[in-house]
Protein backbone atom coordinates (compact mmCIF):
# COMPACT_ATOMS: atom_id res chain seq x y z
CA UNK A 1 0.00 0.00 0.00
CA UNK A 2 1.92 3.03 -1.23
CA UNK A 3 -0.25 6.01 -0.55
CA UNK A 4 2.13 7.96 1.60
CA UNK A 5 5.73 8.10 2.74
CA UNK A 6 6.90 9.16 6.18
CA UNK A 7 10.34 10.65 5.84
CA UNK A 8 12.44 10.51 9.00
CA UNK A 9 15.39 12.46 7.68
CA UNK A 10 16.06 15.01 5.00
CA UNK A 11 18.12 12.48 3.09
CA UNK A 12 15.28 10.00 3.09
CA UNK A 13 12.84 12.69 2.00
CA UNK A 14 15.05 13.71 -0.91
CA UNK A 15 15.53 10.08 -1.95
CA UNK A 16 11.79 9.50 -2.11
CA UNK A 17 11.18 12.83 -3.79
CA UNK A 18 13.66 12.04 -6.55
CA UNK A 19 12.22 8.63 -7.32
CA UNK A 20 8.47 8.74 -6.62
CA UNK A 21 5.54 10.82 -7.78
CA UNK A 22 4.70 12.42 -4.45
CA UNK A 23 3.33 15.66 -3.14
CA UNK A 24 5.40 17.14 -0.32
CA UNK A 25 3.20 17.47 2.78
CA UNK A 26 4.45 19.81 5.43
CA UNK A 27 1.65 21.06 7.69
CA UNK A 28 -1.08 19.86 5.37
CA UNK A 29 -3.45 22.75 5.98
CA UNK A 30 -3.48 23.92 2.37
CA UNK A 31 -3.38 20.43 0.84
CA UNK A 32 -6.17 19.00 2.96
CA UNK A 33 -8.52 21.82 1.99
CA UNK A 34 -8.65 20.36 -1.46
CA UNK A 35 -9.23 16.78 -0.41
CA UNK A 36 -7.65 14.50 -2.94
CA UNK A 37 -8.20 10.80 -2.45
CA UNK A 38 -5.61 9.95 -5.08
CA UNK A 39 -2.77 11.98 -3.66
CA UNK A 40 0.39 10.27 -2.50
CA UNK A 41 1.99 12.45 0.10
CA UNK A 42 5.57 12.67 1.22
CA UNK A 43 5.14 13.55 4.89
CA UNK A 44 7.79 16.01 5.99
CA UNK A 45 6.31 17.01 9.30
CA UNK A 46 8.69 14.81 11.25
CA UNK A 47 11.89 15.58 9.33
CA UNK A 48 14.21 16.94 12.06
CA UNK A 49 16.37 19.01 9.70
CA UNK A 50 13.30 21.01 8.77
CA UNK A 51 12.09 21.63 12.31
CA UNK A 52 14.92 23.70 13.78
CA UNK A 53 15.18 27.37 14.45
CA UNK A 54 18.81 28.30 15.03
CA UNK A 55 21.39 31.00 14.51
CA UNK A 56 24.61 30.93 12.63
CA UNK A 57 27.06 33.80 12.37
CA UNK A 58 25.07 35.61 9.76
CA UNK A 59 21.48 34.42 9.86
CA UNK A 60 18.57 33.18 11.84
CA UNK A 61 17.86 29.88 10.11
CA UNK A 62 14.25 28.79 10.26
CA UNK A 63 13.35 25.23 9.30
CA UNK A 64 10.69 25.22 6.63
CA UNK A 65 8.77 22.63 8.64
CA UNK A 66 8.35 24.89 11.66
CA UNK A 67 4.75 25.56 12.46
CA UNK A 68 3.41 29.06 12.96
CA UNK A 69 3.10 28.27 16.64
CA UNK A 70 6.77 27.28 16.79
CA UNK A 71 7.68 30.56 15.13
CA UNK A 72 5.67 32.47 17.73
CA UNK A 73 7.19 30.55 20.62
CA UNK A 74 10.80 30.72 19.49
CA UNK A 75 13.18 33.12 21.21
CA UNK A 76 15.13 33.63 18.00
CA UNK A 77 12.47 34.75 15.56
CA UNK A 78 12.08 38.52 15.09
CA UNK A 79 8.96 40.29 16.34
CA UNK A 80 7.72 41.18 12.87
CA UNK A 81 7.58 37.49 11.94
CA UNK A 82 5.94 36.50 15.19
CA UNK A 83 3.27 39.14 14.70
CA UNK A 84 2.42 37.88 11.24
CA UNK A 85 2.46 34.23 12.33
CA UNK A 86 0.12 35.05 15.21
CA UNK A 87 -2.46 36.41 12.78
CA UNK A 88 -2.58 33.27 10.64
CA UNK A 89 -6.01 31.63 10.92
CA UNK A 90 -6.43 30.32 14.48
CA UNK A 91 -4.55 28.08 16.94
CA UNK A 92 -5.74 24.75 15.54
CA UNK A 93 -4.34 25.76 12.14
CA UNK A 94 -1.24 27.53 13.44
CA UNK A 95 -0.28 24.33 15.26
CA UNK A 96 -0.23 22.46 11.94
CA UNK A 97 0.62 24.92 9.19
CA UNK A 98 4.27 25.66 8.49
CA UNK A 99 6.23 28.61 7.17
CA UNK A 100 7.60 26.41 4.41
CA UNK A 101 4.12 25.55 3.28
CA UNK A 102 3.16 29.19 3.52
CA UNK A 103 5.92 30.03 1.06
CA UNK A 104 5.64 27.06 -1.28
CA UNK A 105 1.88 27.20 -1.65
CA UNK A 106 2.54 30.26 -3.75
CA UNK A 107 -0.26 32.49 -2.55
CA UNK A 108 0.21 36.26 -2.66
CA UNK A 109 -1.88 36.39 0.53
CA UNK A 110 0.60 34.30 2.55
CA UNK A 111 1.15 36.10 5.84
CA UNK A 112 4.66 34.90 6.68
CA UNK A 113 5.88 34.98 3.11
CA UNK A 114 5.20 38.73 3.19
CA UNK A 115 7.57 39.09 6.10
CA UNK A 116 10.27 37.08 4.34
CA UNK A 117 9.83 39.39 1.37
CA UNK A 118 10.08 42.61 3.31
CA UNK A 119 13.14 41.36 5.16
CA UNK A 120 14.83 40.21 1.94
CA UNK A 121 15.17 36.72 3.36
CA UNK A 122 16.74 33.84 1.50
CA UNK A 123 15.52 30.36 0.82
CA UNK A 124 17.66 27.25 0.99
CA UNK A 125 16.44 24.78 -1.59
CA UNK A 126 17.89 21.28 -1.48
CA UNK A 127 17.67 18.34 -3.82
CA UNK A 128 19.61 15.12 -4.09
CA UNK A 129 21.80 16.80 -6.65
CA UNK A 130 22.76 19.71 -4.46
CA UNK A 131 21.45 22.89 -3.00
CA UNK A 132 21.02 26.54 -3.75
CA UNK A 133 20.27 29.62 -1.69
CA UNK A 134 18.17 32.26 -3.42
CA UNK A 135 16.47 35.49 -2.39
CA UNK A 136 12.75 34.94 -1.88
CA UNK A 137 12.06 37.59 -4.53
CA UNK A 138 13.38 35.14 -7.12
CA UNK A 139 11.29 32.24 -5.92
CA UNK A 140 7.93 33.06 -7.44
CA UNK A 141 6.94 32.85 -11.08
CA UNK A 142 3.30 33.65 -10.52
CA UNK A 143 0.35 32.68 -8.37
CA UNK A 144 0.78 29.08 -7.15
CA UNK A 145 3.84 28.86 -9.34
CA UNK A 146 7.42 28.78 -8.07
CA UNK A 147 10.86 27.83 -9.29
CA UNK A 148 10.97 24.86 -6.93
CA UNK A 149 11.93 21.79 -8.94
CA UNK A 150 10.09 18.51 -8.60
CA UNK A 151 12.97 16.89 -6.74
CA UNK A 152 13.67 19.92 -4.59
CA UNK A 153 12.55 20.91 -1.11
CA UNK A 154 12.56 24.24 0.66
CA UNK A 155 14.50 23.27 3.77
CA UNK A 156 15.33 26.52 5.50
CA UNK A 157 14.70 30.23 5.42
CA UNK A 158 17.57 32.56 6.23
CA UNK A 159 16.73 35.88 7.86
CA UNK A 160 19.19 38.57 8.78
CA UNK A 161 19.72 38.70 12.52
CA UNK A 162 19.09 42.38 13.02
CA UNK A 163 17.63 45.39 11.35
CA UNK A 164 13.93 44.55 11.62
CA UNK A 165 13.08 46.29 14.88
CA UNK A 166 11.65 49.45 13.32
CA UNK A 167 8.83 47.81 11.50
CA UNK A 168 5.22 48.37 10.73
CA UNK A 169 2.98 45.43 9.93
CA UNK A 170 -0.70 45.43 9.15
CA UNK A 171 -2.98 42.63 8.04
CA UNK A 172 -6.46 43.55 6.90
CA UNK A 173 -8.88 40.64 6.91
CA UNK A 174 -12.62 40.14 6.91
CA UNK A 175 -12.54 39.65 10.65
CA UNK A 176 -10.09 39.44 13.53
CA UNK A 177 -9.28 35.73 13.34
CA UNK A 178 -9.69 32.83 10.92
CA UNK A 179 -9.20 35.15 8.02
CA UNK A 180 -7.12 35.53 4.92
CA UNK A 181 -5.39 38.77 4.13
CA UNK A 182 -7.46 41.08 1.97
CA UNK A 183 -4.48 43.37 2.00
CA UNK A 184 -1.31 43.09 4.02
CA UNK A 185 1.47 45.58 4.45
CA UNK A 186 4.91 45.40 5.98
CA UNK A 187 7.50 48.13 6.15
CA UNK A 188 10.90 48.63 7.71
CA UNK A 189 12.89 51.86 7.78
CA UNK A 190 16.32 52.23 9.32
CA UNK A 191 18.46 55.31 9.75
CA UNK A 192 22.11 55.85 10.50
CA UNK A 193 23.87 59.18 10.92
CA UNK A 194 20.70 61.02 10.00
CA UNK A 195 20.29 59.20 6.73
CA UNK A 196 17.96 56.46 5.60
CA UNK A 197 19.99 53.30 5.25
CA UNK A 198 17.21 50.85 4.63
CA UNK A 199 13.65 51.23 3.40
CA UNK A 200 11.86 47.97 2.74
CA UNK A 201 8.19 47.79 1.83
CA UNK A 202 6.03 44.83 0.80
CA UNK A 203 2.35 44.43 0.01
CA UNK A 204 0.41 41.17 0.11
CA UNK A 205 -2.76 40.09 -1.69
CA UNK A 206 -2.56 42.77 -4.34
CA UNK A 207 -1.24 40.81 -7.31
CA UNK A 208 -0.07 37.44 -8.50
CA UNK A 209 2.97 37.63 -6.25
CA UNK A 210 3.74 39.59 -3.11
CA UNK A 211 4.77 43.06 -4.19
CA UNK A 212 8.26 44.20 -3.23
CA UNK A 213 9.86 46.89 -5.37
CA UNK A 214 13.38 47.62 -4.24
CA UNK A 215 14.01 50.10 -7.02
CA UNK A 216 11.22 52.31 -5.71
CA UNK A 217 12.43 52.06 -2.12
CA UNK A 218 15.93 52.92 -3.30
CA UNK A 219 14.64 56.41 -4.04
CA UNK A 220 14.80 57.08 -0.31
CA UNK A 221 18.11 55.44 0.51
CA UNK A 222 20.92 57.73 1.52
CA UNK A 223 18.59 60.65 2.09
CA UNK A 224 17.88 62.64 5.20
CA UNK A 225 14.26 62.93 6.29
CA UNK A 226 13.81 66.38 4.69
CA UNK A 227 15.40 65.06 1.52
CA UNK A 228 13.11 62.09 1.54
CA UNK A 229 10.17 64.41 2.01
CA UNK A 230 11.23 66.22 -1.12
CA UNK A 231 10.95 63.04 -3.21
CA UNK A 232 7.89 61.71 -1.39
CA UNK A 233 5.52 62.66 -4.12
CA UNK A 234 7.51 60.77 -6.75
CA UNK A 235 7.95 57.86 -4.42
CA UNK A 236 4.22 57.56 -3.79
CA UNK A 237 3.48 58.02 -7.48
CA UNK A 238 5.78 55.13 -8.28
CA UNK A 239 3.88 52.87 -5.89
CA UNK A 240 0.58 54.20 -7.15
CA UNK A 241 1.66 52.91 -10.52
CA UNK A 242 3.11 49.65 -9.23
CA UNK A 243 0.08 48.55 -7.23
CA UNK A 244 -2.54 47.10 -9.53
CA UNK A 245 -4.67 44.65 -7.60
CA UNK A 246 -6.62 42.05 -9.51
CA UNK A 247 -10.37 42.56 -9.34
CA UNK A 248 -11.76 39.69 -7.31
CA UNK A 249 -14.38 39.32 -4.62
CA UNK A 250 -12.66 42.22 -2.88
CA UNK A 251 -12.60 45.29 -5.07
CA UNK A 252 -9.30 46.39 -6.55
CA UNK A 253 -10.15 49.95 -5.62
CA UNK A 254 -10.50 49.05 -1.94
CA UNK A 255 -7.23 47.17 -1.90
CA UNK A 256 -5.31 49.92 -3.57
CA UNK A 257 -6.73 52.61 -1.31
CA UNK A 258 -5.71 50.65 1.76
CA UNK A 259 -2.22 50.08 0.39
CA UNK A 260 -1.65 53.73 -0.35
CA UNK A 261 -3.19 54.80 2.98
CA UNK A 262 -0.93 52.47 4.94
CA UNK A 263 2.15 53.48 2.98
CA UNK A 264 1.35 57.17 3.38
CA UNK A 265 0.75 56.71 7.08
CA UNK A 266 4.04 54.85 7.45
CA UNK A 267 5.95 57.70 5.82
CA UNK A 268 4.07 60.22 7.97
CA UNK A 269 5.04 58.32 11.09
CA UNK A 270 8.68 58.68 10.10
CA UNK A 271 8.29 62.38 9.47
CA UNK A 272 8.58 61.92 5.73
Amino acid sequence: MVNGYQARSLQEALDILSSEAVIPYSGGTDLMKKANGNATYLFLNKVPEMKNIREDRKYIRIGAGCTFTEIIESELTPAILKEAAALVAAPAIRNLGTVGGNICNGSPKADCALIFFVTDSKLRLVSKKGERVIPISEFYLGRNHTILQKDELLVEIFMNKTGFENYCYKKVGARKALTMSRVSFAAILNMADGKITQCMIAFGAVGEVILRRKEIDDMLIGRTIPEARAVKENYLAAYEQAINPVQGRISAEYKKTVCMNLLGDFLDSKGI
Binding site: A90, A174, R175, K176, A177, L178, M180, R249
Partner: peptide, 28 residues
Protein backbone atom coordinates in the same frame (compact mmCIF):
# COMPACT_ATOMS: atom_id res chain seq x y z
CA UNK B 1 -21.07 44.15 9.55
CA UNK B 2 -19.65 41.21 7.67
CA UNK B 3 -22.07 38.58 6.44
CA UNK B 4 -22.59 38.99 2.73
CA UNK B 5 -23.72 36.39 0.23
CA UNK B 6 -21.85 36.91 -2.98
CA UNK B 7 -23.85 35.90 -6.04
CA UNK B 8 -22.19 36.03 -9.43
CA UNK B 9 -23.91 36.94 -12.69
CA UNK B 10 -24.88 33.31 -13.30
CA UNK B 11 -26.70 33.10 -10.00
CA UNK B 12 -24.04 31.04 -8.26
CA UNK B 13 -23.15 31.77 -4.67
CA UNK B 14 -19.39 32.17 -4.79
CA UNK B 15 -18.67 32.27 -1.09
CA UNK B 16 -20.26 28.98 -0.07
CA UNK B 17 -17.84 28.24 2.75
CA UNK B 18 -16.85 29.52 6.18
CA UNK B 19 -13.66 30.99 4.80
CA UNK B 20 -15.34 33.37 2.39
CA UNK B 21 -18.65 33.86 4.21
CA UNK B 22 -17.43 35.24 7.50
CA UNK B 23 -19.39 34.94 10.69
CA UNK B 24 -18.01 36.51 13.86
CA UNK B 25 -15.31 34.66 15.78
CA UNK B 26 -14.65 35.02 19.49
CA UNK B 27 -12.15 37.78 18.70
CA UNK B 28 -14.61 39.92 16.81
Amino acid sequence: AMEKIDYNAQGIIRNNNFSDYSIPTAMD
